Simulated assay, not measured.
Amino acid sequence: MSVVAENLHWRVKRKVIVSDVSISVAQGETLGLIGPNGSGKSSLLRLLAGLKKPVLGRVQINGQDIAKVSRRALSRQLAFVQQNAATDTNVTVRDVIRLGRTPHRSALSGWSEDDEAAVATALDRVDMTTRRTQAWQTLSGGERQRVHIARALAQTPQVMFLDEPTNHLDIHHQIEILHMVRDLDLTSIIALHDLNLAAMFCDRIVVLDAGVVRASGTPAEVLTQELLRDVFRVSAEVSGSPDADRPHIRFKAG
């Protein structure tokens, strides 16, 4: 499914958080949202997912205005993975993933073969099948994030939104998570703070600064020394790679 946002504007009281943002994400594409802290990445992600209502503008999923779609129906098409989701409840991995089936079930419906198949497929896709009966509290940070992605996959969405899914993970788990997301047969929009990871795993990148789009394009088009200086206020060398669209950033001290 494609995602198109037109002239999105959102504010809290008098403070503008997202200003006149328009983006387009093709079916099957992985789009990265990057920008300094407070640039509006998480807010834009929630506007795109229908979790916030814009003051102005609209979002279309596969040509359909999401403002005209019920939350339940929308949850059957898209999934949202938030950062650092947690629970103190004594539940198993499978219990957490089962929650992803909520949009597909009515209050009186029993657990179906389709539900069971969706959970089993989600467990397999994040390589957590052997951990399905393990207690949530015993999982590592990387394992918990994989379970959250599995819960989203159990919704059987066609679009996935992820808000800094690698936050607080070590580099091994960061790469593992983003490899997994990129290999999914889904349209994905990911808010990231690590610029080199964005270059490695995103087909295109949108740069936000104070709620405004400062640049949009392939990693090679966007991640320039000038942009890093002007938006992120850092000095850096940007070098090429065997894949011309995947630059590498080396930050300079001072």
Rank of each mutant, 00 (worst) to 15 (best):
L99S: 11
E143G: 07
R144T: 04
T102S: 08
G110I: 08
V16K: 13
W10I: 08
G28L: 02
T138V: 13
S75N: 09
Q77G: 13
I23C: 14
V93N: 08
D114T: 13
V69Y: 08
G38K: 03
T102Y: 03
A49E: 07
I34R: 00
R14V: 12
A107L: 14
T92W: 02
R11N: 11
L45W: 02
V119A: 08
K13W: 09
K68D: 10
L108N: 00
T130I: 11
Q145A: 10
R71P: 10
S43Q: 05
G32M: 07
S112N: 10
K41S: 12
V69P: 04
D114R: 13
T30Q: 10
Q83W: 03
E29M: 05
G32C: 02
Q60N: 13
A26T: 08
I17D: 07
Q27H: 12
R144C: 03
N62I: 00
Q145E: 01
I34Y: 05
P36I: 05
T102K: 05
I97F: 10
G63S: 06
G63C: 01
R46P: 07
D127R: 15
Q64I: 14
G50C: 08
M128L: 09
A118K: 12
I23P: 11
S24Y: 10
V93Y: 02
T130F: 12
K53D: 06
V147N: 09
R14D: 15
T130N: 11
R144P: 04
K13Q: 15
I66D: 01
R58A: 15
A67Y: 01
E116H: 01
A122D: 03
G50T: 05
L45N: 06
I66C: 01
V119S: 06
W111Q: 02
S43N: 00
R72C: 11
V21K: 00
E29I: 02
G32A: 10
S19C: 08
S70A: 05
Q64K: 14
L74W: 08
R11K: 15
F80E: 04
G141M: 00
P103H: 04
Q77C: 00
I66R: 01
I17E: 04
P54D: 00
A122V: 11
R72Q: 09
V55K: 03
K68E: 11
R76L: 09
T30W: 01
P103K: 02
T133D: 15
I17H: 09
R11T: 09
G40A: 01
